[in-house]
């Protein structure tokens, strides 16, 4: 299913939040990446690194006020950032859909789940409510909701967390979008339920050819799911690579450090090597590498010159002194 022409091309995306009485804050800082049809692309990084803001900017869902967005988000040749609110709303749901971390807050609490699925079918596929009902039940069955003909009348609060997330995925899939953005879709779920949802997403991507942007802080999730992985730190992409080479041979000290600090279920009691400090220690990107104060191998340049993202052999890297021998 994969072809070379990108479905989505994000170029130099920057989102700045104005804070009253404070310096403006660049939550997303010149982010560029592409997603090809049918491809699963990961955005990983720690809390606050800009994953959600990136996805909200792509979806046109950032708050109306208090931020400025620049750069381009080309979806099949159209810059989504230039679309009118109405045109963008039409695209959402039809071409691009999103699944959030907290299904309860993204489902309408006073509307039965089934109706929330049929509404999408009515709005975007011009179906009547009557025609949409069996299609909705089918979608619910497809995402693994047992007894969908009965469950279709349930309200969100009558469902468990895992079921709600399935319902949300069903809504997202209702119009057969070509791109699905999943923002921490399993973070709030138990691990056995997470495994079910991840298997479902994998299957859907394979069956429908939908491209997927998977946003997560869990490198384990990425390792099993994503064709290509973008590692974010402080609002910028610091490393990008295909799944296997990236994990086998992490070149950025942050990627390498992350892998060294996660206890692995299959490794016996080796001592972890944490990344020292916290994001509070970051330097501004303007004249340094933000990660330098926490880096395991900084050189003088790191605190003086901003490293740029350089591409070679399918790997993109933003580092003055990359890791030669991983951990």
């Amino acid at each position: 299913m994969m072809s070379d022409a990108p479905l989505l091309s994000v170029e130099d995306l920057t989102v700045t939040f104005g804070r009253r009485g404070q310096e403006p804050f660049r939550a997303v800082d010149g982010v560029s990446f592409q997603v090809r049809p049918g491809q699963t692309v990961g955005l990983v990084g720690e809390s606050g690194c800009g994953k959600s803001v990136t996805s909200l900017a792509i979806m046109g869902l950032l708050p109306q006020r208090g931020n400025t967005v620049s750069g381009r988000v080309d979806f099949e040749g159209t810059n989504l950032l230039e679309l009118s609110t109405d045109d963008m709303r039409d695209r959402r749901g039809r071409d691009i859909a999103m699944v959030f971390q907290d299904p309860l807050s993204s489902l309408n609490p006073v509307v039965p789940v089934g109706v929330q699925v049929t509404e999408v079918l009515e709005r975007h596929r011009g179906m009547t409510r009557k025609a949409a009902m069996p299609v909705a039940a089918d979608l619910l069955r497809r995402v693994g909701i047992p007894d969908p003909d009965r469950r279709i009348k349930d309200y969100p609060h009558q469902m468990s967390g895992g079921m709600r997330q399935r319902a949300l995925i069903a809504i997202a899939l209702a119009c057969a979008p070509r791109l699905l953005i999943a923002d921490e879709p399993t973070t709030a779920l138990d691990v056995t339920i997470q495994a079910q949802i991840l298997a479902l997403l994998k299957e859907l991507v394979e069956d429908t050819g939908t491209a997927l942007i998977m946003i997560t802080h869990d490198l384990g999730v990425v390792a099993g799911l994503c064709d290509e992985v973008n590692v974010l730190y402080g609002g910028r992409i610091v490393e990008r690579g295909a799944r296997h080479p990236l994990f086998r041979d992490p070149r950025h000290p942050y990627t390498n450090g992350l892998l060294g600090s996660i206890p692995r279920l299959d490794a016996v009691g080796e001592r972890l090597t944490p990344i020292p400090g916290s994001v509070a220690d970051n330097l501004p990107w303007d004249h340094a590498c933000a990660f330098a104060p926490r880096c395991s191998q900084p050189i003088e340049r790191c605190t003086q010159v901003t490293p740029v993202l350089e591409e070679s052999f399918g790997r993109a890297l933003r580092c003055h002194n990359p890791v030669e021998v991983p951990r």
Binding site: V191, A223, H244, F247, I262, R264, L265
Partner: peptide, 15 residues
């Protein structure tokens, strides 16, 4: 089931 559900940050293991 629990052990088999935990994602491991290693694509070779995951595959």
């Amino acid at each position: 089931a629990l052990l088999s559900a935990v994602p491991i940050p290693d694509p070779d293991v995951e595959d």
